[in-house]
Design a protein around this nucleic acid. Structure first.
Lengths: 217, 217
DNA sequence: TAAGAGCCGAACCGTACGGTACGGTACGGC
DNA sequence: GCCGTACCGTACCGTACGGTTCGGCTCTTA
């Protein structure tokens, strides 16, 4: 279960995407009763079609996870002239996006399903979610961190460790609380504020003092 | 869903405790097939007894969660003379204990059940787990943080915020990865090392410089 | 317009599981 | 010795759900 590239598969047809969206909608609204009957009813298709297209329930869930993952891909980092302002700006973007993702009802529902699935070792939704979530963002963020180190803005030995610290500072207790059903009000303003302070803390830990630059804040 | 004191209930009889331990064992070994039949078989009791004692499946799960929580209570903080050494020592203890808990197979199984349960709004295992996990440790740690501030060792406005940072630095991506089935090898040495570096980072962020004390590290 | 593919809707099957009922046994009080 | 209580083991019931089958509709292609 190493990082690895996000799993790539044949993109589903438009009709199939509609079905997968129905699954997502159902997950969000009623995470339990996610039955094949309910999916068929909601997507206005027959169960036969579901089984033909996705083999079985597991295949449907897997396809749904990958479908959702495929649309979360956002804001890959572009290497460019890096100063401390653009670096922390980029970090803030990452943190904001990440918090928005993990607090979205789709992500919560998906992670719940995958975690429930990880209990029974039948399928591997868990690893798919991990690959497209935690590890995908790690793969996207680490180049930025290393560019920051290259530019003398950051100091760390291991980018993986640095990333995990960043992950912790940003996520804190949010994900576990949401997964367990705690109703945090997590509006856009809060997210932006939390992201900014996480980045500030991260830079306090890993930032390299800029000598010729002017004083503290 | 506020912090609140850990829920207290009548302690189960010895025989009932044996049943609850059977549930825990079953959760750990085969988190899925946690059926009433399996519990009865494993505990060598009849289903009728299970239903008499615990009302229904939810009651059994709830009792199990509380039973497990009741034995995790450990190392409450004792107010005493506080210098930077004893403070960071205590923080390391907290962090170590916490990492041990969340990486234990019992905790993983329990959280998986509670998360799966939080999806269907039928029961409130999620809030019970939260109250006895994340919030219980918060309630135990905050007095220590405030004592540290009192002693001039720490600087923060809101102990809740400070705690959440601590929580993130310690936990990082560990819990979500374990819940999703990632097989991290998380032995005692790793835990101790991770706990120590988390505390070091926390003190770097919230520690108050000690004037009369001698130099950097 | 005939043949066929693709799909919908509904009926159906087998099984697993939550919950109940009941017969049988051990034990403590009278 | 007899009764009540508590419990075990097992059979049983109802239902929910994954998966299959089938009749019929629509649309394409020739």
């Amino acid at each position: 279960m190493e990082s690895g590239p996000a799993i790539e598969t044949t993109t589903p047809s438009a009709r199939q995407q509609a079905v997968l969206d129905a699954v997502l909608g159902l997950m969000v609204e009623a995470g339990d009763q996610l039955t094949m009957d309910a999916v068929a009813r909601r997507a206005s298709c027959s169960k036969e079609t579901l089984y033909k297209w996705f083999r079985d329930r597991d295949g449907l869930l897997t396809a749904t996870v990958q479908w959702q993952a495929s649309r979360v891909r956002a804001g890959r980092f572009e290497a460019r002239a890096l100063d401390v302002a653009t670096l922390s700006e980029s970090l803030r973007d990452f943190a904001t996006t990440w918090l928005e993702v993990i607090s979205s009802s789709a992500s919560i529902a998906l992670n719940r399903i995958a975690i429930g699935d990880a209990a029974s070792r039948k399928s591997n939704l868990g690893s798919i979610v991990l690959a497209n979530g935690r590890f995908a963002i790690g793969d996207r963020l680490k180049p930025l961190l290393e560019a920051g180190r290259e530019a003398g803005l950051l100091a760390f030995d291991d980018s993986e460790t640095a990333f995990r610290t960043f992950f912790g500072l940003v996520g804190r207790d949010v994900q576990i609380r949401l997964l367990l059903g705690d109703a945090i009000d997590f509006d856009a303003a809060t997210i932006r504020r939390d992201a900014a302070s996480a980045v500030e803390q991260f830079l306090a830990l890993y930032g390299q003092p800029q000598r010729q630059q002017l004083p503290l804040r």
